[in-house]
Structures are given as C-alpha cells and as structure tokens.
Design a protein around this nucleic acid. Sequence first.
RNA 1: GGGCGGUUAGCUCAGUUGGGAGAGCACCAGCUCGACAAGCUGGGGGUCACUGGUUCGAGCCCAGUACCGCCCACCA
Length: 801
Amino acid sequence: MEPLYTPQGVEERWQRAWEAEGLFHADASSGRPSYVIAVPPPNVTGVLHMGHALNASIQDVLVRWHRMRGFNALWQPGYDHAGIATQAVVEKKLRAEGTSRLEIGREAFLDQVWAWLREYGGVIMGQFRSLGCSLDYARERFTMDDAYVRAVMRFFVHLYERGWIYRDNRIINWCTDCRTSISDLEVEYRDVDDALTYARYPLADGPGSVTIATVRPATILADVAVAVHPDDERYASVIGKEVVVPVVGRRVPVIADERVERDFGTGALKITPGHDPVDFEIGRDHGLAELTVIDLDGHMIGDIPAELLGLTEDEAAVAVVEWLREHDQLEKRESYRHAVGHCERSGTRIQPLVSLQWWCAMDELARPAIDVLETGRVTFHPSVHGRVALDWLKAIRPWNISRQLWWGHQLPIWYCPDGHVTCVETPPDACAECGSREIERDPDVLDTWFSSALWPFATLGWPDDTPELRAFYPGDVNVTGRGIIFLWENRMIMAGVELMGDIPFRDVVINSNVLDPIGRPMSKSLGNGVDPLDLIAAHGADATRYGLLKMSSTQDIKFTEGPIEEGRKLANKLWNASRLLLMSGGGEVAARPSSVEERWILARIDAARAGVETDLAAYDFAHAVDRLYHLTFDDFCDWYLESIKPRLGDADVKATAFAALERLLALLHPVLPHVTEEIWSNLPARETRLVVAPWPEPAPEYADDLAALDRAQTAARIYRRSGVRIKVAGDSLRIFEAVVRPSADGQGDVDAERARVGKEIERSERMLANEKFVANASPDVVEAERLKLAEHRSELDALGE
RNA sequence: GGGCGGUUAGCUCAGUUGGGAGAGCACCAGCUCGACAAGCUGGGGGUCACUGGUUCGAGCCCAGUACCGCCCACCA
C-alpha cells in the first residue's frame, strides 16, 4: 500500500469486478423486499454533465445503502429517444452532407437515425460506470425498444378508448425552426422589445373609428372582430356595430368580452383567433371565423393582397404599418417590452397557429394524481415542490401530444378515404368502421414525454404481466431536477395510477441545479461547463461523488472544486488510517473493547450510523457526508487511532481496531464505494464484497460511561492552548499522554488559562443571577447553564488555586 | 401580474423547537510523535442585507424595505 491513495486504476478494477460478479443485479425471484429507483433516462444522444453526476450520485448512495440493508435493490437503467433533440442532430448531419430528410424520405431517414445511434449514441451508461454507479446494467431499456413501443401504443389506445384522446383544430405553439408543434411546457417566455402599433379601424357605417393596439401588425390581416370590455363606457355606443379591418377592408363586428383589459392600450382589442391564444378562446366563445394568414414556414398566405403573399411576418408588418400611415390610420407607435413565448429547444419565437392536432384531455388523469399528492402518498423533497406540482395539476390543460416529426412513436391512428378513424395497437388491415383497405397511418409521432410517463413500469415489461413488474412495482424513489416536475413526475404519477392502479414511487427527490462558480447555468455556448469525467480523472470517482453530495442542497449550487478535494482527502485519510493498522500485520477482526477509548470509538461510530440513517432517510446528503468526514478525521483518526498507537502490539486492541475500521468502511461505502471496497479487500479473512456486506447493526452496548475520554479531551484542549497540565489520572491520563504527548518541561501560562475560565464562570453566574432568565427560560435551559457553571468551576479547580 | 427561494467569515456553504456565531477551503504560527506528496495543534477573521417589532434573550419568530435568483401567467 502506497502512502498516497491513487484512485486511478483501483476504481475501474472494482467497477469491472462488481458488474462481472453480478453484484448490481436484482433478481426478480429473490422474494426479499425490493427497493427500486428508475434512473431518469438520459437522452440517447447525451453525454454526462454535472447535473447527471449529482443526480446519479444521490441515487447510487440510496441504492447502495439499501442494498447493504438487505433490500433487493434495483436501479433501473436506460435511455430516452428524445424525439426533437435526436431528430435535430441527424438532420444537421444530413444538411452537412448536402441532403435533407425530406429529400431521402421517412424510411431512409429513420435508418439514418438508427445508424447514427449505433455509432454515437448510448455513451452515458459507460460514464455512469466510471462514476461507480451500481445500475443493473443488464436491464438497460430504451424507449424505442419494440417492447417499449408496444407499451406506448397500449397507453395511447387506452386513453383513446376512454375518450380522452381526440383530434381538434385548436391553437398550438408552432416552432418554425423545429417544424413541429410543441406543448405549453416546452415554451419559455423571454422579454422582447417590440413596437406597439396603434391603428384606427373606421366604423363601417358613419363617421368615427376604434383604435386598437397590437405588437403584430401583420396579423391585422386575419382580424375577425374588435373586442371591448362590456362595462367600458367609452365604447358602449359601438358595441354591435361594425368596423373595417385595414388593408383587407373586411367588415367585422365590435363585440363585448370581459377578458379585455380596459386599462391596456386603448381598451379595444383586435381579435385574431388564427394567430393568438387569447383571441382563439374569445373567438370560439363568440363563434368567430379562424383565419390563417401565416403558414408553417412563417410566410404570408391566405386571402390577402397579392403583393403581401410570400412575405415574412416582419416584412408584412412593415407593409401594413406603411399602409396605415398612408391612409392616416396609424395613430402612433411606441416601444414596448413584454414576455413572448419561445421554443425552449431552438430559441425561436413561437408562432401561435390554428392546426389540426391530437390532444389528450387531462382532467380525469389529474384527479387521482391530485389525491395522491394531497394525501401524501407521494411526497416531494423539499416539500415546496409538491405544492407547486399540485397547483399545476389543479389547473391542468389539454395536452397537445402530436408532433410533426419522424423520429418517435408514430400515432396508432389510421384514416380511410371516408374519414373514419381507426385506433388500434398494431397496424390493421382495414378501416374498423367501413372495412376499407385503403387506410393510411397518421404521419405524426407522439410527444417524447408521452412515452416517458410509462418509464417506471414499461421498463419492467408492462403491458405484460412479468415477474419484474410483480417484484419491482411500485418503486420507491425518483430523483430528478425541478425543471421536469410537470413534464415527467406528474405524468408518471398520472400514468402509474391510471394503468397500474398504484403510484410509481413514494418519494420524489428534487436535486439542485449545478451552476458555474458565479451562478450561471453551465452551458455549451458560455463554455463554462465542468466535465465530471475530468473531475473523476483528476480526483477519482469517490471524491467526485463526495464533493457533489457535500454541495447538494435544497438550493441551486454554485460549483466549486473545494468539496471534491475534501473528498479526495477523506479517501486518502481513510487509506492511510488503514495502512497504519495493516502495516503491523493481519490478525483477527473482532470487537473486544477493553478500554474506554475503544468503547468510545465504537459508540461514536454507532452514533454516526444512526445520524447517517436519519440524514439519508431525510434525503439530506450534505449532512450525511459531513458527519462521515468528521467521524473519520476527528474521532477515528485524531482521537481513537492516536490513543491506541502505543498499544497496537496488543492482539485484542488490533482486532478491535479492525472491527471499528470495518464498520467505518461500511458506513462510508455508499458514498466512497471504491476506496472502501479496496481497503475491505485487504482486511484479514475477507470472503465477501463490501458492496453486498450488511449495513452495521445498532450497537447500543458501547454507549456506556465515556467520561474518561471527555476528561482527556478537556485536558488536551487546555494543554494545547496554554501549555498547562490539569490534573487527570487513570485512563484519562493514559489517553492524554498517548494523544498529546506532552513535553516534560514547562509550566504553561496558568494565569491566562485561569482568567479565561474565570470569564466563563462570570458569564454563567451573570445569566443565572438574572431573575427573569431563571423565571422565564425553560427549565432544561436553566439546568444546562447550571451544569456548565459547575464544569467550569471544576476546571478552575483542576488548574489549582 | 401571481407564487416561491436566497442574502451568515476572504470564498463555497451549515446553522434542527429562540438559549454562548460553525464547517471546509484560503491565511498566520507551532509541532513532527509508529499511517497520512502531508498530517496534527493553535490562532486571526463575522453590524448574521437593512428598518422596526415581540421576548429575560432573535441569525432563527412577526411586519416592512432593498438586492439576487427561480417558477407560473392569455394585458394585445
């Protein structure tokens, strides 16, 4: 054993051994109680980033801990096909090759995607291995596996048959860059500086006009009404009359609707159901037409002046404003900053369009999920996220589930020439209604999150009744970032309760976002990302795990390398403490404490065990690892090992030391799996692996009188600070001399020490002399103060009068 | 517009029901003794964002202010 612990090599060796020996494998027929976590499936095209590393470290600690506690622990691995992201990657490659998906066609394109994935996809599982993750790698699943596709089809048909999935022309979020609709959750709002254009719409009959304000003048061409608030006296006289839409000259009604804000702009709102979500709602309620003047590419179309056809929206806006100016209908333009929806993936400004899409009504699915959260059957940690999840469920809206993409789960919907719809799991021969064989499948695919909702049970074989499903559902915990609570957590709960009749997990742990050292999100474009693989190469996987857990919090975390270096130091310290014991030869491993410091360390380890259990049960990883750090450094190394050094030749003392080390290694293993396994393998008479060794049982028998060590510690503190030796005897003296190794000479500064203790006594006396304190403070607080005073007085006594 | 979180040492952060301000890193000094390319020990360093309030006592509770951040949202 070298003095410096070098994780490189050691870690890979154990990663290979654990997996080769099948120690991560959960057997569906074991009969033991299960503990199940399904990994948030990373994008099949993705590579490990700090968020994954933190997320995985948390899950691995939980899984390893439960495995040691005797649970049949399954950490389910796998990948998500990530529809838009993956399709975009392959399309980019095609462009570079001078072709496009439209040119090569759907079938060839999908072949290309699969080929691309075979070559470049699916690298994260290897990176998880490098972090020491104990996933059951043999059970890897992919959302595009045949079996998983079958599950998705079953889910769709199930919802269709319940009448919750329907097709409708509604306003959607169209991304002109991704060329697909996206769900409301994939729209992010950004502040944009726009111009607010005030345009006069003349009354159709007689003099007068109504002025509206708009940020999108081009959509004037699709106006079908002007709306005002029913109680707005300024406009009372024009309600029911008609105005003339500029440029196109269409006569449209002035309607009254309470959704119009009197205080904004002029208080009159142009209504464009074809290109605005609010207007769409108002239009539906008033039975208005839904005109479209902007196509899927963002170009002007429809029943508009010929010179505008084919222009971009911005070009058309310029032309419309110019027309208004020429006709003296432009009242003013002013700058205006407001929030505008953008595609989360491409950053493109969302184009609201009316489009024929597939939708899923969510009310019936949400109802039981709301109950699950309200009754606490599923609990979020920290709990604030549960309240937010609940609020979202209570205000849930229909979900646009169809995407105009090729990569994904194609809808199990077939149309016949008569317009009948057939919805079945496997491709039919004929229309279910009229028997026509000229059926065509809907070209759209499903939102990626539609399949993700099934992850906790589709990975276990659902819809088949498999041994895995019976052994491992429901699962226990799900760990993820707060960004996908609505996209994923809520939908897994809804799908689990609907299809399985039970919740997919009891606890949802929301881990921090990892930011750069000055608090910005890590991103490729900023170039401020830290690569976890670099950290692993530099400090080891154990240190990286430790550091991430130490940083973890209920807040976002600003990444610093310090905690990872702390982890490296801990691994090195443990390594060297073990060297001290191992260098003096083998022997027995048996707890036979015969002295106070031996009972003390066993009691301290047991207290730490209890503390770590409490911390981990509360998903408080930072405190758990902090506790382990101080147990190792302060208690085990600085006090215990130092105190037994003079007696290391004693076989019982060493056997006890090995027993204590063994327990310490077990406690540390979930956090530092490699170094602990390595040391464990060097302990005398090893037959098993630490990864599957039992978690230490409570050891209350050692928590006896430990006062001798307390006295030795007090004596050491005083001696180290002032050079003064206070009177101690027996065990306390022996421990004091072993740990402190005082020099024989020197009397130290007794006066200074006495003055210091004197101040403490004065403070206690003053507090206890305060009648209000004694009268109002709780009795135990007063009693504690009296004890402190007594201790200080005896300390003063030990210093000699 | 609504909601949530944060502000504590030079840095990154802990501070459980109110009862002497803590850790790691960084800095300074001493030690080196049977493991520790280091380790151990000691030390300096804080107006706990600000203002009021409650209390014998407030980093913690209450009211408000400022700044930072996040989520949600149909004022065009």
